[in-house]
């Protein structure tokens, strides 16, 4: 019997998006992790002799108006942002997978009700909704995570639901049923592995959106509290330095945010292209 060509196993070959996205993302994660254990200077220690310095060999990203080293603050503060993004994607993703599999597999009334709720959530521009909710609630990492996680559920629920609805009608699911597999066995063992290829890009885009959302919310002053350091919070702090002729604070923080979301979105696009 003729053998068919075995699929190309190297996922990076010829996939420019995946290669670049993975490289940037890995670099940014290492940059952030390093910032949690070591920074060039103490990120929160003011220095009267080094206030508002421009970038130099001693302070690559310059210093803020209290004389704190911006590179150190960014390395450290990126951890808060990444932690928020991770928790948002984790909680929103798990809830989305559960809702998407149940609605996609069973359909019917449950499907109608849950998906209408998802529609309702997405009907509002999500940042605006987050702003309103956080105006009412206390600012802080925990509340940002919960609000964003809830807002992110529909995007995961939709892709998972579509895949479950498609797979449910496939013959291998009918066969599993004939062999005596129950619905939860079918959902977990038979269908879920087929959903990873569409879930992975969604997760990557989720990280992208979560970083962006944290930055926007904290920038507008309704994200993390004043005592917590995150990329968005630093962007907020840097606003008045721009006018005082010291744009590097905003620029360097902005650069780190841009690199982070660029990495995640390239990664997402690369993962998506791998499915073709």
């Amino acid at each position: 019997m003729a053998k068919q060509p075995v699929k190309n196993k190297n996922p990076f070959a010829g996939n420019w998006f995946l290669t670049a996205g993975a490289a940037i993302t890995v670099f940014m994660i290492l940059f952030t992790l390093l910032g949690q254990i070591w920074t060039p200077y103490d990120p929160s220690l003011p220095d009267e002799n080094a206030m508002s310095l421009a970038p130099s060999p001693a302070h690559w990203f310059g210093t803020d108006s209290f004389g704190r080293d911006i590179l150190s603050r960014v390395m450290n503060g990126a951890g808060t942002t990444l932690l928020i993004a991770f928790l948002v994607v984790l909680i929103g993703g798990i809830a989305g997978v559960i809702i998407g599999s149940l609605t996609g597999y069973f359909g019917g009334v449950v499907d109608e009700v849950l998906m209408r709720i998802c529609d309702l959530i997405t009907a509002f521009p999500s940042i605006l909704l987050a702003l309103i909710i956080l105006r009412i609630m206390e600012p802080g990492v925990k509340n940002v995570v919960w609000v964003l996680a809830i807002l992110f559920v529909p995007s995961f629920a939709r892709v998972v639901r579509t895949e479950f609805a498609r797979c449910r009608t496939q013959n291998y699911v009918k066969l599993a049923r004939l062999q005596g597999a129950g619905p939860f066995r079918i959902m977990l063992r038979h269908i879920l592995p087929n959903v990873w290829p569409v879930l992975l890009p969604a997760v990557s885009i989720g990280f992208n959106n979560a970083v962006l959302a944290e930055a926007s919310m904290s920038f507008l002053g309704v994200g993390v509290s004043a005592s917590e350091v995150s990329l968005g919070r630093m962007l907020y702090d840097s606003q008045n330095t721009i006018l005082r002729g010291a744009p590097w604070y905003a620029l360097t923080v902005g650069l780190v945010i841009v690199l982070m979301i660029l990495g995640f979105s390239l990664l997402g696009e690369g993962l998506r292209q791998r499915n073709r």
């Binding site: 496939q170 013959n171 291998y172 009918k174 066969l175 004939l178 062999q179 005596g180 038979h190 592995p193 087929n194 990873w196």
Partner: peptide, 18 residues
């Protein structure tokens, strides 16, 4: 007990992820 089936289209009868 448990009659089994062999479907017409073998490609959709085999789980592509397994």
């Amino acid at each position: 007990p448990r009659p089994q089936v062999i479907f017409q289209d073998p490609s959709s009868a085999l789980n592509p992820a397994r």
